[in-house]
Amino acid sequence: NNDALSPAIRRLLAEWNLDASAIKGTGVGGRLTREDVEKHLAKA
């Protein structure tokens, strides 16, 4: 759900053309954090 994404995370996902549903969020309530996105990018 994009409503739970911060503007910074939305921008990062758009910049790298990533799908938020493909990344497991570790923040409060399962929210994506910058670290989650960076770890996903490191694996790719």
Rank of each mutant, 00 (worst) to 15 (best):
N1W: 04
N1S: 13
N1Q: 12
N1P: 13
N1F: 07
N2H: 13
N2A: 13
N2I: 14
N2L: 13
N2V: 12
N2D: 14
N2Q: 12
N2R: 11
N2F: 08
D3S: 10
D3T: 11
D3F: 02
D3P: 10
D3M: 10
D3R: 09
D3N: 11
A4M: 14
A4T: 13
A4G: 14
A4I: 14
A4N: 14
L5G: 04
L5S: 04
L5T: 06
L5Q: 08
L5F: 07
L5R: 02
L5I: 12
S6F: 05
S6T: 11
S6H: 08
S6D: 15
S6L: 07
S6P: 10
S6G: 09
S6R: 03
P7V: 13
P7L: 09
P7S: 11
P7D: 15
P7M: 09
P7W: 03
P7T: 11
A8G: 09
A8K: 06
A8H: 09
A8P: 05
A8D: 15
A8T: 10
A8M: 07
A8F: 06
A8S: 12
A8V: 10
A8I: 11
I9A: 03
I9M: 09
I9D: 02
I9E: 03
I9P: 00
I9Y: 03
I9F: 04
I9S: 01
I9Q: 03
I9T: 04
R10S: 08
R10M: 05
R10C: 15
R10K: 13
R10E: 12
R10H: 06
R10L: 08
R10F: 01
R11L: 10
R11M: 10
R11G: 08
R11W: 08
R11Q: 14
R11I: 09
R11E: 13
R11H: 12
L12G: 00
L12F: 05
L12N: 00
L12H: 02
L12S: 00
L12A: 04
L12M: 11
L12D: 01
L13D: 02
L13W: 00
L13S: 00
L13F: 02
L13E: 02
L13Q: 00
L13I: 07
L13N: 00
L13V: 04
L13R: 00
L13Y: 00
L13H: 00
A14W: 12
A14V: 10
A14E: 15
A14C: 15
A14L: 13
A14I: 11
A14K: 11
A14S: 09
A14P: 09
E15G: 03
E15I: 07
E15L: 08
E15W: 08
E15S: 04
E15Q: 07
E15Y: 13
E15M: 08
E15K: 08
E15V: 05
N17K: 06
N17I: 04
N17P: 06
N17W: 06
N17R: 04
N17S: 06
N17T: 03
N17F: 08
N17H: 11
L18R: 01
L18G: 08
L18V: 14
L18N: 05
L18H: 08
L18Q: 07
L18E: 10
L18S: 05
L18Y: 05
L18D: 07
L18T: 07
L18A: 06
L18F: 05
L18M: 08
D19E: 12
D19F: 01
D19K: 04
D19T: 06
D19P: 06
D19G: 04
D19I: 07
D19N: 07
D19Q: 06
D19V: 07
A20R: 02
A20G: 08
A20Y: 07
A20V: 10
A20D: 07
A20F: 07
A20M: 08
A20Q: 07
A20K: 03
S21E: 12
S21Y: 05
S21V: 09
S21M: 09
S21W: 05
S21G: 10
S21I: 07
A22K: 11
A22P: 04
A22Q: 14
A22H: 12
A22Y: 08
A22F: 09
A22D: 15
A22W: 09
I23N: 01
I23Y: 00
I23T: 01
I23R: 02
I23G: 02
I23P: 01
I23S: 01
I23D: 02
K24D: 09
K24R: 10
K24G: 05
K24F: 08
K24T: 14
K24P: 11
K24I: 14
K24N: 10
K24V: 15
K24C: 14
K24Q: 14
K24H: 10
K24W: 05
G25Q: 04
G25H: 07
G25W: 01
G25S: 07
G25K: 05
G25T: 05
G25Y: 00
G25A: 11
G25V: 06
T26H: 04
T26C: 05
T26L: 05
T26P: 02
T26Q: 03
T26F: 03
T26M: 04
T26D: 03
T26E: 03
T26W: 02
T26R: 02
G27L: 02
G27F: 02
G27K: 02
G27E: 02
G27M: 03
G27R: 01
G27W: 01
V28D: 12
V28K: 11
V28P: 15
V28M: 09
V28L: 12
V28A: 11
V28G: 07
G29I: 03
G29Y: 01
G29E: 10
G29W: 01
G29H: 07
G29T: 04
G29M: 08
G30F: 00
G30D: 05
G30R: 03
G30P: 02
G30A: 04
G30L: 00
G30S: 04
R31M: 15
R31E: 11
R31F: 07
R31P: 04
R31K: 13
L32G: 00
L32P: 04
L32R: 01
L32A: 03
L32C: 07
L32Y: 02
L32K: 01
L32W: 03
L32T: 03
L32D: 00
L32E: 00
T33M: 05
T33W: 00
T33I: 05
T33Y: 00
T33H: 00
T33K: 05
T33A: 01
T33G: 03
T33E: 04
T33S: 06
T33C: 06
T33N: 03
T33D: 02
R34S: 09
R34N: 11
R34C: 14
R34A: 12
R34Y: 15
R34G: 05
R34V: 15
R34K: 13
R34W: 15
R34L: 15
E35R: 09
E35L: 10
E35S: 09
E35C: 13
E35H: 08
E35V: 08
E35M: 11
E35I: 08
E35A: 11
E35D: 10
E35N: 09
D36C: 04
D36M: 02
D36V: 01
D36A: 01
D36H: 02
D36T: 00
D36I: 02
D36E: 01
D36Q: 01
D36L: 02
V37I: 14
V37S: 01
V37N: 00
V37E: 01
V37W: 02
V37G: 01
V37T: 00
V37F: 03
V37D: 01
E38H: 08
E38K: 08
E38V: 14
E38F: 15
E38N: 06
E38Q: 09
E38M: 15
E38T: 09
E38A: 08
E38W: 14
K39F: 08
K39A: 14
K39I: 10
K39W: 07
K39Y: 07
K39V: 08
K39Q: 12
K39E: 11
K39H: 12
K39D: 09
K39R: 14
H40G: 03
H40N: 03
H40L: 10
H40A: 15
H40C: 06
H40P: 00
H40K: 04
H40F: 15
H40Q: 06
H40V: 11
H40Y: 15
L41G: 04
L41W: 07
L41I: 15
L41H: 15
L41K: 04
L41T: 04
L41M: 09
A42P: 06
A42R: 13
A42T: 09
A42V: 11
A42C: 14
A42Y: 07
A42F: 07
A42S: 10
A42K: 12
A42M: 11
A42Q: 13
A42I: 11
A42H: 09
K43M: 14
K43D: 11
K43G: 12
K43V: 10
K43I: 13
K43H: 10
K43E: 11
K43C: 14
K43Y: 07
K43R: 12
K43T: 11
A44L: 15
A44D: 08
A44Q: 14
A44F: 13
A44E: 12
A44Y: 12
A44R: 12
A44T: 14
A44V: 15
A44H: 13
A44P: 07
A44W: 11
A44C: 12
A44G: 09
